[in-house]
């Protein structure tokens, strides 16, 4: 199986009438050549530097670097918090997408535009502003602290920052699919005696499930690598609230390049795996919507 054959069928490939006239348009060699050159210079060669640097470590050194207790604790926090945040985003992202597609209410366009805020707002700004809100003297924190709820400078803060970062991924993948669902199917279900809830679970939900899962995977992938918004609110205590990217920075600051590289390779492998999962999910989603 070649790499191409396990790849995703692209929407353009779905139009066979356009496939026959391959090389009528000029510029194929130029654009492909430039794409490959730029891709190699900016992405592939630097990434291979990471892999080659790892080979200078012995297996024992590599294993020691990626499995020290402090690093393991950071994996647990990074993966755990990313998972919780992505799950919360699935629920609320679906709700926001649903409300935006199905209902009308004043200010809907503003809300729709605001959903993209986490894409556009620099992560460091999000970090300091969430911290200002949730710290013990902040707008929200001052009411929660007397109740014994602490949302900043501990793992809770990490989860909240990651919810902020991941929300648009779920909304923006579910929204178009929800817009395209056929009302006729819902009407048929109602005519056949289904309640609204049954219609949602049996008819609407299966058609948006692939998109929801894709959005979840994207939010999760983004959350795992996130750095800027988290470090301000996390408190960054080793073993408790230190995320994996911060461990890499810590090792770099101690000039432990080999150790930093080893942990970075673990993160890179995770990114690759998630990227392949997301690609497979998007392929599934396209086949679903294509078959309907």
């Amino acid at each position: 199986m070649t790499a191409a054959s396990i790849g995703v069928p692209l929407p353009g490939a779905a139009a066979p009438s356009r496939g026959g006239s391959k090389k009528v348009l000029p510029g194929f060699n130029l654009t492909l050549g430039y794409t490959l050159l730029y891709l190699s210079l900016i992405v592939l060669i630097p990434l291979s530097a990471l892999v080659f640097k790892t080979f200078t470590l012995s297996w024992e050194q590599f294993w020691a670097a990626i499995s020290s207790p402090r690093v393991l604790a950071s994996y647990r926090l990074t993966f755990g918090a990313s998972l919780i945040a992505a799950l919360i985003n699935v629920v609320f992202g679906l709700l926001v997408a649903w409300v935006l597609v199905r209902y009308t209410f004043p200010g809907k366009k503003v809300v729709d535009a605001l959903v993209d805020l986490p894409f556009a707002l620099p992560t460091a700004v999000a970090g300091i502003s969430l911290t200002a809100l949730l710290a013990g003297n902040g707008w929200i924190g001052q009411y929660l602290e007397p109740l014994g709820i602490k949302l900043a400078f501990n793992p809770n803060g990490v989860v909240i920052a990651l919810i902020f970062i991941g929300l648009p991924f779920v909304v923006r993948t579910v929204q178009p699919v929800l817009e395209d669902t056929e009302k006729e199917l819902e009407e048929a279900a109602m005519c056949l005696g289904a309640t609204r809830w049954q219609t949602f679970i049996r008819v609407i939900f299966p058609s948006i499930a692939p998109a929801l899962l894709t959005g979840f995977a994207m939010a999760f992938a983004r959350a795992i690598g996130e750095y800027g918004s988290v470090i301000f609110i996390a408190g960054n205590m080793p073993m408790v609230s230190e995320i994996t990217p911060l461990v890499i920075i810590g090792k770099l600051e101690q000039y432990d390049y080999a150790g930093a590289t080893a942990v970075a390779v673990v993160m890179l492998v995770m990114s690759f795996v998630l990227l392949l999962v997301i690609n497979a999910l998007q392929g599934w989603q396209r086949r679903r919507s294509g078959g309907a």
Binding site: I6, G7, V8, P9, L268, S271, L275
Partner: peptide, 16 residues
């Protein structure tokens, strides 16, 4: 398809 995936790669690499 593989090239498209490679173009997307920097999205999923942690900024650090």
């Amino acid at each position: 398809a593989f090239l498209t995936t490679l173009v997307d790669l920097p999205f999923s690499v942690s900024p650090v």
